[in-house]
Simulated assay, not measured.
Amino acid sequence: MNNPSHTTITIDLVLDRHTTKEVLQAVLHAILFHRLFGLVKPQTFDILDVTMPGVSDPEMEQLVNEKVDAFWRAVEGGISKRGQITVTFLEKRPKKSWFQVYMGEEEVPWEQWVINAELRQPKSDRDRQQFLTTLAATLTKAVQTMLVHTSSEKGRTAVPLITNATGISPFPIRIAVSVGGVEVAY
């Protein structure tokens, strides 16, 4: 399962209670928008005057909402106010034994997006205003990172050959949530 050759892109976010769910949903949708290769119906998310692309697909929306809710519950109910949401794109490859005998398929990651999120509460209205300005700049930078990576030579060559064109994604997607270093089930 571990493939050291896959690319990892990290996005660091500092959030408050009022913006956490909305921002995480938008960031996850933006990643999926840039990495789904099927017929994608677009939508947009406007957060703090930053417009982020998204995917209008019931299955993807449910997956994103479940993962964001799991993150929120773990952060709200636990001691740690830091966590990660990891989006891993995988390809299915034939698995062979030592004697080149076909042993089924294995899922091998070709790209991973790590969203590090930390919850903080601004102390005053002035702090809150500065916090929101910084968060808007961080979201703008995150979208730029997505655009630059997915349109770069490295980002394009990371995508494996598409052999199955059915559905919204020809590749398996795994989204994992961990808070305080512990994986959270939804």
Rank of each mutant, 00 (worst) to 15 (best):
D57A: 12
A26Q: 13
V101M: 10
I162T: 08
T7A: 00
L28K: 00
T8Q: 02
Q144R: 08
N164T: 04
E61G: 07
E153Y: 15
K95M: 08
D16T: 15
V68M: 03
N65H: 12
M1L: 13
P160D: 00
I168T: 04
Q43K: 15
D49G: 09
V114K: 02
T145Y: 01
S80T: 11
E76W: 09
E22P: 00
N164S: 07
M1Q: 15
P94K: 11
R82Q: 12
I162W: 00
L36I: 09
K154S: 12
R128P: 01
F71C: 06
I168C: 11
V40C: 08
K92A: 15
R126F: 02
A136E: 00
P122F: 02
F33P: 05
T19R: 10
L139Q: 05
I173G: 12
A117V: 05
N164V: 01
G38R: 06
E105K: 12
I9V: 08
G77M: 06
A136D: 02
R174A: 09
N116M: 03
I115V: 10
T157S: 13
E183P: 04
F99L: 15
L135H: 11
T88Y: 06
V23G: 04
L24Y: 12
K92F: 03
K81E: 06
R82H: 05
V159G: 00
L24W: 12
T157M: 11
Y102I: 14
L24V: 09
F171S: 10
R82I: 10
E118L: 02
G78S: 09
T86I: 10
Q100Y: 03
Q144W: 03
P53E: 07
I47Y: 09
K123Q: 07
L28C: 15
H149I: 06
I162Y: 00
V179H: 07
E118D: 06
